[in-house]
Simulated scan of single mutants.
Amino acid sequence: MIVLMRHAQKEDSKGRCIGRTPLPLSDVGREQARSLVESVRGIGFKRLCASPAQRALDTVSPLALDLNMSVDTIPALNEIDMGKWDGLLFDEIRREYFAKYAERGDRFGSFRAPSGESFSDVADRAMSALEELAHSACPVLAVTHAGVLRSVLCRVTGHPLDDLFHFKPDYAHCTLFRSGNNGLELVADNVSPDDLSSFFESTS
């Protein structure tokens, strides 16, 4: 079983385009990371992984310390690269890149910001990483980002990438996948850490 978790709550970035812009965890996020230890330590994860973003690493670090495990950094699980738009206010983007911003609304899944990548690109790289994880020691916990989770969920379920905001992964919540006859299969999405261990018990 592969457990993909969205990182804990980050500091407020309302109104900004956030892809790989570094943002620390908020006070709530740091508490979520600490609480994660008690919630999931008994599951028996064989491997801990994370996006290279500091907010992802800070989410899994307390658990890794408690379990005396290292964290494997997986660049393919990083958030979408928004290129020249990363960190800008959306008001600035609409003003300075009016035509491009309108284009984004017409083809959300395949649109690339200047010098950035598309959600289709994100799905390609993330799916490749998940397929590798599926053949490693499991269960594995990998901390990633909302954009990655939404892209992967679209790819696995066949939901249109242009409607990826159909999926609403909460901070520090989990999406579970397993290997099936036709590749990765979705087991459950947006599972809280407190519910995760009982879910494993019920599906073991």
Rank of each mutant, 00 (worst) to 15 (best):
154 C>P: 07
13 S>W: 12
76 A>L: 08
134 A>V: 12
108 F>M: 11
158 G>F: 07
46 K>E: 11
33 A>G: 06
198 S>H: 13
198 S>C: 12
20 R>D: 00
192 S>A: 15
96 E>H: 12
86 D>N: 07
27 D>K: 08
83 G>K: 11
94 R>V: 10
107 R>T: 13
111 F>A: 01
91 D>F: 07
128 S>M: 09
56 A>P: 03
137 A>H: 08
3 V>K: 01
174 C>D: 01
96 E>V: 12
77 L>C: 06
116 G>M: 07
171 Y>V: 03
47 R>V: 04
159 H>M: 05
121 D>P: 10
170 D>W: 07
118 S>T: 14
90 F>C: 01
67 L>K: 05
159 H>N: 04
112 R>G: 00
53 A>N: 08
115 S>G: 07
199 F>C: 10
61 S>Y: 06
75 P>M: 13
97 Y>F: 15
133 L>Y: 03
101 Y>F: 15
185 E>A: 07
23 L>Q: 14
157 T>Y: 02
20 R>M: 08
75 P>W: 10
88 L>N: 09
28 V>S: 10
135 H>K: 09
30 R>Y: 05
150 R>K: 12
139 P>V: 15
51 S>R: 10
58 D>C: 02
107 R>D: 14
181 N>K: 10
70 S>K: 14
154 C>I: 05
53 A>D: 03
175 T>D: 03
135 H>R: 14
115 S>T: 09
132 E>N: 05
113 A>W: 02
24 P>M: 09
23 L>T: 12
74 I>M: 11
187 V>T: 03
43 I>N: 11
29 G>N: 04
191 V>L: 14
